[in-house]
């Protein structure tokens, strides 16, 4: 018997009974982090989360606070020129800026990179995220945006452009909106690389990017419907 057959038959022989039905998971309609998603109707007296948005309140401030708590930072920028200026201001000493976005061309186009090892000298990587998650302070990146996945982790610093309108409430909402199998790689990135492995001291830049900067800027196409 092949290992595959042996494992499957051992599993079949030992399946616990009775079988448990698969529960439905919460959908993507907004419910308000402040009062909890309250999946069960009768659970109404849940404690309130101070500072979290209610159903009618905007998500962006909460996203920015959560991102900051995770060690990231965010700035509102008016247009592509402002984004370029911000990158120049934040990283005045950067020699190699490798970009996957048109708004900030940088010194190297990611499309010209053939092998991930070529990214070892990148000081700043720039990429656009299609989705932010407020409760986690996270941005979603896939191979479609990164082009070469290693851009996200080999760059010393990472700058992510995000449409402020593309922020959803919780991870449930995020998973409703993404198509996992459509990209070989997808990452929710919440702040820079971090470790607490030595006496619990939080250190940024353990192995991946030392910093994560989110620039809040709608894509040109959306800002200008023409």
């Amino acid at each position: 018997m092949s290992p595959r057959e042996a494992i499957l038959s051992a599993v079949r022989k030992n399946l616990p009974r009775p079988a448990v039905p698969l529960p439905e998971v919460p959908g993507s309609e907004r419910k308000g982090i402040k009062h909890g998603l309250g999946y069960k109707e009768h659970l109404t007296r849940l404690p309130e989360v101070p500072g979290a948005p209610d159903v009618n309140e905007p998500l962006l401030p909460y996203f920015r606070r959560q991102l900051e708590a995770m060690g990231g930072r965010s700035f509102e920028v008016a247009d592509a020129a402002a984004a370029r200026a911000k990158v120049a201001e934040l990283f005045p000493d950067a020699n190699v800026v490798c970009s996957a976005v048109s708004e900030v061309p940088g010194t190297r186009r990611i499309q010209d990179v053939r092998d991930p090892h070529e990214l070892n000298d990148v000081d700043v990587g720039v990429v656009r995220s299609p989705l932010g998650v407020a409760e986690a302070g996270a941005v979603w990146l896939t191979q479609a945006e990164l082009v070469v996945n290693a851009l996200g982790v080999l760059s010393q610093h990472l700058v992510v452009l995000l449409d402020p309108a593309a922020v959803v409430e919780t991870m449930h909402d995020a998973y409703e909106r993404i198509d996992l199998a459509s990209s070989p790689y997808g990452v929710f990135l919440a702040g820079p690389s971090a470790t607490g492995d030595i006496e619990g001291v939080i250190i940024h830049g353990a192995q991946g990017a030392r910093s994560l900067t989110v620039l809040l800027l709608a894509p040109a196409a959306r800002k200008d419907p023409r």
Binding site: V133, E135, A138, M171, L180, P184, G186, V187, A190, G191
Partner: peptide
């Protein structure tokens, strides 16, 4: 939503990475 809150008290790990087939 539960994993890193339970582990370290952060809402999510810094990297939550999904792999579906080989990269380019």
């Amino acid at each position: 939503r539960m994993l890193s809150r339970s582990a370290l008290g952060t809402p999510i790990t810094q990297y939550t990475s999904h792999f579906h087939g080989p990269r380019r």
